[in-house]
Write a protein that binds this DNA or RNA. Structure first.
Length: 665
DNA sequence: CTCCATGTAAACACGA
DNA sequence: GTCGTGTTTACATGGA
């Protein structure tokens, strides 16, 4: 099914390809809700002590909340990951994200570029936040209940430890939860997702977690703030963002035994329902949109009044289309979610500690605390993801997916990406826009885990694969491996894409087969490779502009760095890339080329993250020349890791400039 | 409309 | 005969 849907979507071919039907199980098709892991809460109750029960439930509640978060985030990215096991959860998300027009997740993936998907994901996250909020409420209730229960239990069968303490502790925990909720509310409010009296105090954004791509965030805030003051909420709430954002990623690693009792996400299109059912405040009417409530648009900072859903949808499509502003807002939302996640994790850990202190089984699994330990999870996530030899998305990996992409995604959603809204057929590579390298670098975690087709041509991907290697040569099989390693999408339908790879290797002169002792390897003839593109790029001014923007994009933005740090994208680290810079005498770098991007950055001397064409406008000088020079593989990468500060700064500026960009045709 | 680049499918050859 | 690797052709699609 997937194969077909994919291909069909891509080319919208009526002929319908029956040929390769290695269709993998469709995640959403599965219907029924197969294994909902959760559901354990009930059984457990019987034999637990009150304290244990409390713990258990608390834990579960948190877990569910967290998991829900993850699922929300993951849903889009790795639909296939759950094949066979829990097909249900993910689809709903993506479906929910879709406005009225019902499009299958798969289709959506095919249609939208990853960044776009991510953007959509952000939307979904908003929903998720709402649900999370609901969850907090419930959890509170639960806590209360538990407290009561425990009190009674205490009276009936006095325990060695004074209940008072426990109660205190629990109350504290309760408080924590309340705070969390409050915070959450504020965030929602800030985002315009909830219509509450606007917050007041204005607090400098600077306090935001540096760990979280501060620059991006700040910039985003600036943009978003234009519409309405928001900063305060975060700051006020005292979001303790000191934690590494990267950690959030690791959370995912947390095991996942979703007791989805609370959020039974049926297959398919439940997401829409969940909020509706659970939250009375936000989703009042069936068929309503997560971003629509109380007759107004809940898009952050919007509040536009819409009489009905139809009008709202229209409004949504016109006013909140996939542009830089929306992207920025999504990013903000993303950050919010991340913060919440971090906070949640912290609170969970605290709870664990409390529980432990209250003589709970120390050995008890601590799903949440674990993540925290993964501070250096960057490594972990990478290793895990690399681990899947069979391409089977394992829990940790898939869990990781959501966050990374989230953070990275938005950053990637730049002018360049915006162009690729349409069919996948036109891949990035061809378009003047984002260099494959940078895109990959930024989203490689995403592609790695999400079953989304990369917006690059086979040729550019192959080239990328080859160039990433130290000796710049790969056997066919190695190329295959690279594909499967780097892209979840290529872990299935192997017959199709492998054929395409071979086809491309043979077809394009730029790929040179070299007989080797042990067989044959494929290399890239840069000259040839570049020869084929220039024509396209040198088009309208706009194109040039776009191209430039793509090139100019200093791959150094925070996200990028983060990505690097976390995943240590091979490419970036590859010695070749670093050394060969000078060696590459190739001019006209393919714009989809990784190294090219980097090079550009260096040449410019500006680490300014990609983005804005505007920026270019201010520095036209480079712009025009860019296309012609710079070749890939360059060392810049290494710089990335070390240039955080610069990046940050540059990033801020870039973001600002990002908005005006639109001239792209 | 044509041209071109691309993606997909498939037939075929060749060697292990 | 099967499989992996390559080559080639045909066709469809979409952008310029």
């Amino acid at each position: 099914m997937m194969v077909e849907s994919a291909s069909e979507t891509i080319r919208s071919t009526p002929s319908g390809q029956n040929g390769v039907s290695s269709l993998t199980n469709q995640p959403d098709g599965g219907g029924g809700g197969g294994g909902r892991e959760g559901a354990a809460s009930g059984e457990a109750n019987g034999e637990m002590s009150p304290v244990e029960l409390l713990h258990f439930q608390q834990q579960q509640a948190l877990q569910v909340a967290r998991q829900f978060l993850l699922q929300q985030a993951t849903g889009l990215s790795s639909p296939s990951s759950n094949e066979g096991k829990q097909p249900a959860v993910q689809v709903p998300v993506s479906v929910a994200m879709m406005s009225p027009q019902m499009i299958t997740p798969q289709q959506m993936q095919q249609i939208l570029s990853p960044p776009q998907l991510q953007a959509l994901l952000q939307q979904q996250q908003a929903i998720m936040l709402q649900q999370l909020q609901e969850y907090y409420k419930k959890q509170q209730e639960q806590l209360h209940l538990q407290l009561l229960t425990q009190q009674q239990a205490g009276k009936q069968q006095p325990k060695e430890q004074p209940l008072g303490n426990k109660q205190l502790a629990f109350q504290q925990q309760l408080l924590q939860m309340q705070q969390l909720q409050q915070q959450h509310l504020l965030n929602l409010q800030r985002q315009g997702l909830v219509s509450l009296p606007p917050g007041q105090g204005t607090v400098p954004l600077q306090t935001l977690p540096q760990a979280v791509c501060p620059s991006d965030l700040q910039q985003l805030w600036k943009e978003v703030t234009a519409a309405q003051p928001v900063e305060d909420s975060i700051k006020q709430e005292g979001l303790d963002l000191t934690t590494n954002t990267s950690n959030s990623t690791s959370f995912s690693a947390a095991k996942v035994s979703p007791p989805i009792s609370h959020h039974p996400l049926p297959n398919g299109q439940s997401t829409m329902h969940t909020p509706r059912r659970d939250s009375s405040s936000h989703e009042e009417t069936p068929g309503s949109h997560p971003l629509y409530g109380h007759g107004e648009c809940k898009w952050p900072g919007c509040e536009t009044l819409c009489e009905d859903l139809g009008q709202f949808v229209k409004h949504l499509n016109t006013e909140h289309a996939l542009d830089d502003r929306s992207t920025a807002q999504c990013r903000v939302q993303m950050q919010v979610v991340q913060q919440l996640e971090i906070q949640l994790a912290k609170e969970s850990e605290r709870l664990q500690a409390m529980m432990a202190h209250l003589h709970m089984r120390p050995s008890e699994p601590k799903p949440f605390s674990q993540p925290l330990n993964l501070v250096s999870s960057a490594t972990l996530s990478k290793s895990t993801s690399d681990t899947f030899p069979d391409g089977l998305p394992h829990p940790p990996t898939s869990a990781t997916a959501p966050i990374t992409p989230l953070r990275q995604g938005p950053s990637v959603i730049s002018s360049s990406t915006l162009h690729n809204v349409g069919p996948i057929r036109r891949r990035n590579s061809e378009k003047f826009c984002t260099p494959i390298s940078s895109e990959l670098a930024q989203n490689h975690e995403f592609y790695k885990n999400a079953d989304v087709r990369p917006p690059f041509t086979y040729a550019s991907l192959i080239r990328q694969a080859i160039l990433e290697t130290p000796d710049r040569q790969l056997t066919l099989n190695e190329i295959y491996n690279w594909f499967t390693r780097m892209f979840a999408y290529f872990r299935r339908n192997t017959a199709t894409w492998k054929n395409a790879v071979r086809h491309n290797l043979s077809l394009h002169k730029c790929f040179v087969r070299v007989e080797n002792v042990k067989g044959a390897v494929w290399t890239v003839d840069e000259h040839e490779y570049q020869k084929r593109r220039p024509p396209k790029m040198t088009g309208s001014p706009t194109l040039v502009k776009n191209m430039i923007s793509g090139l100019g994009y200093g791959a150094l933005n925070a996200s990028y760095q983060a990505a690097l740090a976390e995943s240590s994208f091979p490419l970036l680290n590859s010695p070749t890339m670093i050394n060969t810079s000078s060696a590459s005498g190739m001019l006209h770098v393919g714009h989809d080329d990784v190294s090219s991007t980097v090079e550009q950055v260096n040449s410019n001397g500006s680490n300014s993250p990609r983005l804005s064409p505007q920026q270019y406008s201010s520095h036209p000088v480079h712009v025009k020349e860019e296309p012609a020079e710079a070749e890939d593989d360059s060392r810049p990468v290494s710089l990335l890791a070390t240039t955080n500060q610069n990046v940050t700064i540059a990033d801020d500026r870039d973001l600002e400039e990002e908005l005006p960009v639109e001239d792209l045709s």
